[in-house]
Simulated scan of single mutants.
Amino acid sequence: MKVRETRGNDTAFRGRLELVKPPVKKLWCRGELKEEYFAKTVAIVGSRRMSRYGRSVIEEIVPKLCGTGYTIVSGLMYGVDQLAHKKTLESGGLAVGVLGWGIERVNDPESDRLTDEIVAHGGVVLSEYPDDMRGQLWTFPQRNRIVVGLSDIIIVIEAGIKSGTMSTAQWAKKMGKPVYAVPGSMFAKTSEGANLMIETGLAKPLTNAVVEELGGRGNAFEKKRELKALDLDEQALVGFLTVVGPSSVNELARGMGIGVGDLLPVLARLELSGVIAEERGIFAIV
């Protein structure tokens, strides 16, 4: 598999690694770097000693995140990282793996196989370390800063008190990235770190409602980028719905001070373009 060298300021990364300290000067990669891979990203990280509970959470949330266009970023270690990437590929999503060892190192059969599968499915695997350099205690925390830098959001599935995932959350705090952690049992060692993140405010609790919101937020980001393509009437209607929330035709007409006859064509255009949706006579931004 061909390996090539790139830099942290490669335009494909969309400036995401500019926040990372120490700076990322060089990276080696397998697979093709494409700017669209990094348009909307979420890191899924956690314990190498994953529980059944952690597995079930990954199997539930990864397909939803992939379905709303998120690229899944993780570290390719066994446990949470590898399962997140496996479910990403099964869901038809894009995966970005960041290694804590040399890009050409034969590490273990599972991570090597998964690296090949990620590239074969159009994703990319990155490493700050060349050749067959062995992973060491310091390389994994350094790897974590790149995972965070590449991601819009960090989701912690499970984490022990002294796990490397705690360093990932600290990197996220330094870079101002939102962190969500899955609340776990008070009796589970694999949830002690995640629960502590929530207790101390380092992370917000991840719930089903939050997962749905993240999907909607991702779409909202895309719609925000598309607003410039809307005409003035469409922009005004979207702006009104953003402020007021879901509304009926009559509420929109009254609130915006325009006639229903003038409003209906604007609603139709926005609904056809997928910016808004109607349910039982109520219109809302998708």
Rank of each mutant, 00 (worst) to 15 (best):
K2G: 04
V3Q: 02
R4I: 15
E5V: 15
E5K: 14
V20M: 14
V24C: 09
K25Q: 14
L27K: 10
R30L: 08
K34N: 09
E35S: 09
E35L: 00
E36F: 06
E36C: 03
K40D: 05
V42C: 09
V42Y: 10
V42I: 11
V42F: 05
I44H: 02
G46N: 02
S47I: 04
S51R: 05
G54D: 15
S56T: 05
I58H: 01
K64G: 04
K64R: 11
K64D: 07
T68N: 08
T68M: 08
Y70I: 15
I72L: 14
S74G: 12
M77K: 04
T88F: 05
T88G: 01
E90T: 01
G92S: 11
G92R: 02
V96W: 06
R105Q: 04
V106D: 05
L114H: 00
T115D: 01
D116A: 10
G122I: 12
G122L: 08
V125H: 00
L126G: 08
Y129M: 10
Y129K: 00
W138M: 09
T139M: 06
P141T: 05
I146K: 03
V147L: 07
V147W: 08
G149Q: 12
D152P: 06
I153K: 06
I154Y: 13
E158F: 09
I161P: 04
G164Q: 04
G164V: 15
M175K: 06
K177R: 10
Y180S: 03
S185C: 14
F187V: 15
K189R: 14
G193R: 12
G201Q: 13
T207C: 07
A209F: 09
V210L: 03
E213N: 06
E213Y: 15
L214E: 09
G215Q: 01
G218V: 08
N219M: 14
A220M: 12
F221Y: 07
E222L: 14
K223E: 08
K224D: 10
L232M: 06
Q235A: 15
V238I: 13
G239Q: 15
F240K: 04
L241K: 13
L241C: 15
S247L: 13
L252C: 13
A253G: 10
A253L: 08
G257Q: 15
L264W: 00
V266S: 03
L267G: 11
A268Y: 14
A268S: 15
R280C: 02
